[in-house]
């Protein structure tokens, strides 16, 4: 297999993971103007939930046909439990405060969740590698790829297209787009913003947990797995423009492919290449690739 093609495939796989983590983050920011630092911790919770259900820790390992549905159920469970709890009970207390205060509240939340994970699941790694074998291994020249990674690319594409179609084609989606632009006007027009926030945040938690549950089979589930994920997805959404689904997709692709190219061509640069790309994009496009300029209010 040609090196350029290898880079592209590696970049796509990595980008799919990044996109799955980042899309929830960008939606929550777009609609609620909350940069949710706890997104990474929720991603870890999703991974633990998936590992508990499917990895043979709570029950015997389920048959192959049930493994993927159960991973999704795990993510749903996390979302329905934590979404309303965190938004309805906690974040609501901070609405109307500075963006940075809410950001700090989610930062505090991520510290708390990380410790709670340790209390519930302990510090030792969990493994749920069974689904990783579901789609077999694909031989490509000198390389072997895992079918599950291709499946993740498909899932990422479906999630992205689904979100995009929802925002463009449905009535609720159009309301959400309106909220992204100006939630005050929406409120004045009779939109139940408070309920929309609850839904948005719960969907955000679901997307974080889904990313965690689906990626869990490819790695070891540890309490700190969210730390690296959250900072990379910050980079992705900032590159793409906060609040934009298309931006997150493009950001994930750019970061994925640049990182893959760096690993193949200049391995030592991997440490900071993502941030170098982010700084370069911001220097040229101050609000990210798909960022919209903010109206000036007098």
């Amino acid at each position: 297999m040609d090196i350029a093609l290898t880079i592209l495939v590696d970049g796509l796989i990595y980008g799919a993971w990044l996109f799955l983590v980042a899309i929830g983050l960008t939606l929550v920011f777009g609609i609620m103007k909350i940069l949710n630092v706890a997104h990474g911790a929720l991603y870890a919770v999703g991974a633990y939930a998936g590992a508990s259900l499917v990895g043979g820790y709570l029950f015997a390992t389920p048959p192959a046909a049930l493994q993927l549905p159960l991973l999704i159920v795990a993510a749903l469970g996390v979302a329905l439990l934590l979404g309303p709890l965190l938004e309805g009970v906690l974040l609501r207390l901070f609405y109307g405060r500075d963006e940075v205060v809410i950001l700090l509240a989610t930062f505090a939340l991520s510290l708390i969740i990380e410790d709670l994970i340790k209390q519930v699941w302990g510090v030792y790694s969990y493994y749920v590698s069974e689904p990783y074998a579901l789609f077999g291994v694909i031989e490509a020249g000198p390389l072997f790829y895992v079918g599950y990674d291709a499946f993740l690319i498909v899932v990422a594409a479906l999630v992205g297209l689904g979100a995009s179609a929802f925002l463009r084609l449905t009535r609720q989606g159009k309301i959400v787009v309106a909220m992204i632009h100006d939630s005050e006007i929406c409120r004045a027009m009779g939109v139940n913003v408070s309920r929309a926030y609850l839904w948005t945040f719960t969907v955000g938690v679901f997307l974080a947990a889904l990313a965690g549950a689906l990626i869990a089979p490819t790695l070891a589930v540890t309490p700190t797995m969210g730390v690296n994920a959250i900072i990379l997805s910050f980079a992705v959404v900032v590159i793409g423009g906060l609040g934009s689904v298309e931006g997150a997709a493009l950001g994930a692709l750019i970061v994925g492919c640049t990182r893959a190219a760096t690993v193949h061509l200049w391995p030592e640069g991997e440490l900071f290449i993502v941030y170098a790309v982010m700084a370069a994009v911001l220097a040229v496009r101050p609000r990210g690739l798909f960022g919209m300029p903010e109206g000036r209010k007098i």
């Binding site: 900071f272 941030y275 911001l282 990210g288």
Partner: peptide
């Protein structure tokens, strides 16, 4: 020239480059 989240994140990116270096 930057404000808000972009100011915060641009600073973050630069600091992470220093960290990596």
């Amino acid at each position: 020239g930057y404000r808000g989240v972009f100011f915060a994140m641009f600073n973050l990116a630069l600091s992470m480059i220093l960290y990596g270096a």
